[in-house]
Nucleic acid binder design. Structure first.
Length: 293
DNA sequence: TCGCAGGTGGTCG
DNA sequence: CGACCACCTGCG
C-alpha cells in the first residue's frame, strides 16, 4: 500500500479485470461509472475511485483503489484483495464450467474480466431484499435514499467531487433499521418491501447475522432467489445458484428446460458447475440480459 | 393504460 | 407440495 498526496493506492498485478463487467453485471448497486477505466463506489464507510491501468506487458497491469473520503477505513490490503476476489483463479474455473459448452464459452467471452465481489453481508441482505420484483435503476435509487435517510454520513475530501448520484452515506446499521416503523420508510419508496427490511433487521438484532444459506432463507422477504444472491455475494458461498427470470430464460432457450422446472435447473447447475455455480450463473445472467436489451 | 421489473408470502386444492 | 395471485413503485 502506498500513499500519494493524502490518498491511498493498492496495486495488483497480472489480473484480468474488467471494471464495466464487474460493476454492471448486476451484483452490486453502489458503484457508478466515471469512464471506461474508472468507477466510483461506496464500500463500508469509504468512498473510493477504482481504476485499472492495463499497461503492456499484461503482468504489469494494476488495479488502483483511491479514497476520496480521507483515510481509508478499509485500509487492509487483504480486505480489498478479498473484495475483488483476487484469490480465485478465473482461468481455471472458466475452463471447468465451459467444457463442451458453447453457450457458456460465449457467455464467458462476453463477460470476461468480471469479478464476483465479496461484499458486506448486511449490505447484501438489504440490497437483495429490495431487488425483488424490482428493476435496477429503482433498486439503486431506493438504496441511496435509504442510506441518505438512515446511514452514517461520510466526509468527502473535495465537496465538489462528482459522486455520480451516490449519496455520501454508509448502509444503515442493523440497529437503526430495527427501530423503524414502516411509515418511517415511506420516503424511501420501498413499497411492500419496507416491512421486510424492518422485520429482517429485528431478526438480526435478535439472532445475529445468518451463518448458513438455511438461516438466510428464514429472513423476512427472502426466498430462494434472494437467499442465493446473499449467499453468493455476501457470504462467499460460490456454489449458490440464484435462479431469476434471466437464468430461467437461458435455461429454457439454451438448454431446453421448462421455465417452471426450477428443481431441474438447480440439479443441472450442481452437477455441471458444482462449486463454481455462482460464477456460471453470473456469466449466463449478464450475457442473456445484454442480448435482450 | 396496463404490464413489467433480477420474487415472496399467503392461500388453496 | 405445487399452482396461483396480490403486491409498492415508476417507466414505457
Amino acid at each position: 500500500m502506498t500513499m500519494t498526496k493524502g490518498v491511498y493506492e493498492l496495486n495488483y498485478e497480472g489480473k484480468d479485470i474488467n471494471l464495466e463487467h464487474t460493476f454492471e453485471c448486476g451484483q452490486c448497486f453502489r458503484w457508478r461509472r466515471i469512464d471506461d477505466k474508472r468507477y466510483i463506489g461506496i464500500v463500508g464507510e469509504d468512498i473510493v475511485e477504482v481504476s485499472v491501468c492495463d499497461s503492456e506487458p499484461k503482468s504489469k497491469a494494476k488495479l488502483k483503489i483511491k479514497s476520496i473520503s480521507g483515510e481509508l477505513k478499509n485500509k487492509n490490503r487483504d480486505f480489498w484483495a478479498n473484495y475483488f476476489d483476487m484469490q480465485t483463479n478465473y482461468e481455471n474455473l472458466q475452463k471447468s464450467i465451459s467444457r463442451d459448452d458453447q453457450v457458456m464459452q460465449d457467455a464467458i467471452a462476453f463477460g470476461n474480466g468480471m469479478r464476483i465481489l465479496n461484499q458486506d453481508l448486511w449490505e447484501s441482505i438489504i440490497s437483495f431484499i429490495i431487488s425483488q420484483n424490482n428493476n435496477i435503476p429503482r433498486i439503486k435509487g431506493c438504496i441511496e435514499k435509504l442510506c441518505e435517510n438512515f446511514g452514517y454520513p461520510i466526509n468527502i475530501d473535495n465537496a465538489k467531487f462528482d459522486l455520480k448520484g451516490l449519496s455520501p452515506y454508509a448502509i444503515p446499521s442493523v440497529e437503526v433499521l430495527a427501530k423503524l416503523q414502516v411509515e418511517d420508510l415511506d420516503s424511501v419508496k420501498l413499497g411492500y418491501r419496507a416491512k421486510y427490511i424492518i422485520k429482517t433487521a429485528q431478526a438480526v438484532v435478535k439472532n445475529g447475522l445468518p451463518k448458513t444459506l438455511e438461516e438466510v432463507e428464514q429472513l423476512s422477504g427472502v426466498g430462494p432467489k434472494v437467499a442465493n444472491c446473499i449467499g453468493l455475494f455476501g457470504m462467499g458461498i460460490t456454489s449458490s445458484f440464484p435462479i431469476d427470470v434471466w437464468v430461467k430464460r437461458v435455461m429454457n432457450v439454451m438448454y431446453g428446460f421448462d421455465e417452471k422446472d426450477i428443481k431441474g435447473m438447480k440439479a443441472f447447475a450442481d452437477k455441471k458447475y458444482g462449486r463454481w455455480s455462482g460464477y456460471a450463473q453470473q456469466y449466463l445472467f449478464y450475457y442473456m440480459r445484454s442480448k435482450e436489451q
